[in-house]
Write a protein that binds this DNA or RNA. Sequence first.
DNA 1: TCCAAACCCTTGGATGTCCTAGTATATTGC
DNA 2: GCAATATACTAGGACATCCAAGGGTTTGGA
Lengths: 168, 168
Amino acid sequence: MGTPLPRDPIADARLNWERHGWSDVAAPMAAITAIMRTQQILLGRIEAVLKPFGLTFARYELLALLSFARSGALPMNKASALLQVHPTSVTNAVDRLQDAGLVIRSPHPTDGRTTLIELTPEGRALAKRATAVLNSEVFGRSGFGDQDVDQLIRILGTFRRNAGDFSD
Amino acid sequence: MGTPLPRDPIADARLNWERHGWSDVAAPMAAITAIMRTQQILLGRIEAVLKPFGLTFARYELLALLSFARSGALPMNKASALLQVHPTSVTNAVDRLQDAGLVIRSPHPTDGRTTLIELTPEGRALAKRATAVLNSEVFGRSGFGDQDVDQLIRILGTFRRNAGDFSD
DNA sequence: TCCAAACCCTTGGATGTCCTAGTATATTGC
DNA sequence: GCAATATACTAGGACATCCAAGGGTTTGGA
């Protein structure tokens, strides 16, 4: 990561918006751009922690999801829905996790269309170790204050519900 | 995008974290995961709007940045720094924008190492039209309340400053 | 019963991002 | 003045994401 910029580029963009007569949408534009940039920063931290484990965020998410399933196994389409990513992304992740011996594919007992993803003991152990480091190095040092964390969960939760993520 | 899930998957993940004795980091984990998911939703909306223009978000950002530069031209390294992406990503975006006739590369007048990216009239016109639609369709209907927009800008601004994005 | 529609997963192609390495040009120091 | 260092951009490779298309399986209505 380079040297800090002398000025906040998002604040500058907001000024540019206002100068061009788009004041009514300048603030949401700045908020949305800030979300994009924050995601980029956080993803960078997470991937840096996971790299020594040979994991990417996408693969870790799948591993973690499986480790919380009672049986340690889930159908591909369930995983796709819960992780809210495209089915092909799950296929891709499973391919690599399987090559690494962390999961195995097995046929669904009653539905021939469905493939189950199952955690191996190695996969379960790796998920546990990776989570421990993520907890201490990323989530435990997020840089957000406690109140801001609550605000984020509230604001983004409302947004996600309105966007159709869940009907809770 | 599929049917809404019956339950919020991030709230469930938070419960799983608490059940496993990681209550101290469960809330920041939920906040960070929510940021990742929100970014995904917003990016999807933006790319859907830009697709008819033949633009992706990465290319649009570069066009918009150039359109705000007084001369309509910037060195590659400046663009990379301001957009906060890897230099190779700028190279990639410029390649495609140049193929589309929206920008041209020109040599820097005094520094032979540097390449200037310059907006063509077509590029400037397209940026203007794309911005108008983004403003009305995405930023103008973000789904965030006015107060929440302010909160997001404040919280994420502090985060980005602490992360070393800028020293303002 | 049987066939069309729906569903599940995979493959192939396009895009974007990053990293590492390499080439070319500037600047600095001796 | 020349070598060493720093900077700017590009090339190639690894991953992840999406879309479109295809083949196998199940379901439900004619």
